[in-house]
Design a protein around this nucleic acid. Structure first.
Lengths: 213, 213
DNA sequence: GCGCATTTGTGTACATCGTCCACAATGAGC
DNA sequence: GCTCATTGTGGACGATGTACACAAATGCGC
């Protein structure tokens, strides 16, 4: 009878929740192979549906990719928040603020290393032009990765650890540093570096951000 | 008769220098559309040759891409060197060393902004696994981008601007920062930022590297 | 000079992909 | 219960990467 064979095979004509199923499949594909692996036909196959069915829910492969991308971004935010959650709140504000910034960076780098396919998908060039703006890409706390970083920096200013004059654009600079390391580690010259070396480099980079910002 | 129609149409059976022609076409494609635009059939079309001819010179599309990638990397090195060449040598060694580091970074960022397609191609993930090691990717001076950066950092140590203890891994950290900014500006949230804002951010980032390294 | 093997380009073919169009099954609203 | 908008199916097209067999040109040994 095979009501639920591994790929699919449903009895009903309607799928019920195809849109979600396609995104789910897309996430699985992205996880395994990055953005290029998000292939429309394969997603429909996994959803047990004919390729064209996808066009009832997405205008194009790119449209599906964007949805997957948003999901991936949300997971980045998750990773950051879970790192932030580890912080003990008891400390002096200055230390706490600094630790927040590091936590944000650490979450980013950890996620990049652990889920490189999704990470690459999250930051793929979104077509020729797109406001993008990381729309519904927030984590459980309701903040997207960019906003989480901004909040950490604000905390640093309040705690007097970061001069107010240096606050402007600080998120771009800090993000750049962390993002660059993530990229180089994922598929740049630093690929296959070993977790220990990766952590060491990560710490060193965050030192630079902390001191140089 | 059309001996030389725009796309191609040669008289001879042999092409003469197909390998080079394909790489050249690949570079043009990468320039215009990044790594994904390096399409084997289109390259052969431009070379005025049937698709399969490419396989006499490249094992696969990916192999062609690697060749284009090497060329792109060489141009990155060019950009860095040309920025280094602008430096007046007369100054105090410390200033000169610092300026070298900035020049390397500036060249990198300039190239990323001016030739984003080639830049993205230069740093695309090279397949599932590859030693890569930036082989014949050097500029006129014979140094690849990574080596140019290393040389600048060495100069800083010699000039006493960078503590010897902090020299280790410094290229990875510095590269990360600059690379990250380049990525964000090219197709991340900082896309379409305007040259002035871009330069400002670049300077700020290089400040961070200089102070925080 | 000449014959033949090696190189290099051609022709045909296949699977896969994104996408379009016409049609069929379904379920909601009257 | 009829109608109609929604959602999935079937078949098709052009593009891509690539494999296999064949043909033209080159160059080497003689």
């Amino acid at each position: 009878m095979a009501v639920r064979a591994p790929p699919a095979a449903r009895g009903t004509y309607r799928h019920g929740d195809l849109r979600r199923a396609l995104i789910e499949a897309g996430i699985a594909l992205a996880r395994a192979g990055g953005p290029d692996a998000v292939v429309l036909r394969e997603a429909t196959r996994r959803a047990g549906v004919v390729p064209n069915a996808a066009y009832r829910h997405f205008a194009s492969r790119l449209d599906l990719l964007q949805a997957v991308r948003a999901a991936a971004l949300a997971r980045v935010a998750d990773a950051m928040e879970s790192e932030l959650a580890k912080l003990r709140r008891g400390r002096r504000p200055a230390d706490f603020a600094r630790a927040s910034l590091r936590a944000v960076g650490t979450g980013y780098l950890r996620f990049a290393a652990a889920e490189s396919g999704l990470f690459r998908t999250a930051f793929v060039a979104p077509g020729p032009l797109s406001a993008a703006a990381l729309p519904a890409a927030a984590g459980p706390g309701g903040l997207n990765p960019f906003e989480l970083l901004g909040a950490a920096l604000d905390r640093m200013v309040e705690a007097g650890v970061l001069a107010r004059a240096r606050r402007a654009d600080a998120e771009y600079i800090a993000w750049s540093a962390v993002h660059g390391l993530a990229m180089l580690v994922i598929d740049g010259p630093l690929r296959g570096l070993g977790p220990a070396a990766r952590r060491r480099l990560g710490r060193r980079l965050l030192d630079m951000v902390e001191n140089g910002l």
